[in-house]
Design a protein around this nucleic acid. Structure first.
Lengths: 241, 241
DNA sequence: TAATTCTCAATTGTCGACAATTAATTTCTC
DNA sequence: GAGAAATTAATTGTCGACAATTGAGAATTA
């Protein structure tokens, strides 16, 4: 058993992590309001510390600040969804290119295992596991590329995408489709086909984005939380009490 | 005369702007140390406010924090340069694609004017103006794409790139080269040739990145500020006094 | 009653003080 | 004199308090 260094995390970063999980985990609906005082009571920290954490989340695009008024969870429009998915596609394409140019057997193994796990989850029909392994495969490509800045950017985008996923009922295609769209990704990469890997990843993401945009546009009049175009807030989020 | 709304900026964002300018403007060398106390005295603000601003800069990648020890200006390695330029190329390629798919005469005009300004600066040999208009053309492509997230990402990357430029003596190619490498960009975009625009912008950036990486690797032993691999700090930056 | 002004409770913006931690310096021991 | 231990100076981490600002509701006026 190996000992790893213990580094006590500062209250600031712990608060940021807790708030991040609270928000992307669906503890507050998009547009829901957050007040520094209530959060500091709930977390048992000073308001200054919570405030720093909120600023952090604001930089990550998860909350927005209204001066002297409060913080609210980001309300994402369908245009935001489009931006998110085009950007994600571009980052993944870059990562895939770097990865194919720098491949080794260990990385190939990891990709294969990730794909197998996704296939298994699809065959089993476990929807939670499917989403997990779907995102997992994409994240693996990014992380294996070894490009730290792309990985960091990707992390932020992924969290914003989660804001949708939690609050929109399942809009996934059939599990067969999922396998069919992901297997070519791994195949192109392990084959070293840079051009194909780039193209597939970009198109894959833009298609997913198109589906989501359409879904959001159709539901706009049904959901009560969705667009909030002017960034208005909605009270009633007492989940921190 | 029309009245425009007055919005008083909070001290936090003003501090962030001042610090950002100080850092990217070369007021502190990479690796140079910053202390909250001295900055708060220099700016006439409380340490808490300055601290918030420093956190903001840290999120932008301009400074790094060492717990209970201090803040220092990011020291960029040659690997950082490579990451910066590959990422930038990818973002610009995306922006160029979106732009060609959504062109109008007004945008074409702006592109032409930007290119003309760059050419004029090159012919005049004014190096400051060249850098300005070079960056300006690239930024224009991004901003005309209408993709807010790409624009924001691009802003951050550009600031980090400035950290190099300020502290490395001119490593620009001849002004003739600059014209030759930029004219095709505008030509491809206004011709609506999506594929070419993407390719040119990506390669253009990756070449610039390669040049910079090589430059940094060669100078590594000469410069006294450059790599600081373990993130060590250097005192003696009394520029805030 | 409709429109305007005033008031006030709620919330963020800013600050200075104290605690925790680090890194250098000094002291101590051999 | 050299190395380890204790001390100390410098700096960040955290906190509670006060000031500034906002938005909604009450009071006012025509």
């Amino acid at each position: 058993m190996e000992l790893r260094p213990i580094r006590k995390k500062s209250a600031e970063v712990e608060a940021a992590e807790a708030l991040r999980n609270h928000v992307v985990g669906g503890g507050v609906p998009p547009g829901g309001r957050l007040t520094e005082m209530r959060l500091s009571e709930a977390l048992g920290l000073s308001r200054t510390t919570v405030r720093t954490a909120l600023h952090q989340l604001a930089n990550e695009g998860l909350v927005v600040q209204m001066p002297y008024t409060g913080w609210s969870v980001t309300s994402l429009s369908s245009e935001d969804a489009w931006e998110l998915y085009t950007l994600r596609g571009s980052l993944e394409a870059l990562a895939a290119r770097l990865l194919t140019e720098n491949l080794d057997s260990n990385k190939i193994d990891q990709l294969q295992r990730a794909l197998d796990a996704l296939v298994a989850a699809c065959k089993k029909g476990d929807e939670v596991a499917i989403v997990d392994h779907d995102l997992g495969l994409h994240k693996l490509v990014v992380s294996l590329s070894g490009h730290r800045r792309v990985a960091e950017q990707y992390r932020l985008i992924e969290q914003q995408i989660r804001l949708y996923i939690i609050w929109s009922d399942r809009l996934m295609p059939s599990s067969g489709d999922i396998i069919d769209t992901h297997r070519p990704i791994v195949e192109a990469i392990v084959a070293g086909d840079t051009r194909a890997a780039e193209t597939i990843l970009r198109d894959h993401n833009e298609n997913a984005g198109r589906v989501l945009v359409e879904f959001l546009n159709n539901r706009r009049d049904l959901t009560d939380w969705a667009p909030a175009p002017a960034g208005l807030l909605r009270s009633g989020s007492r989940s921190t009490d």
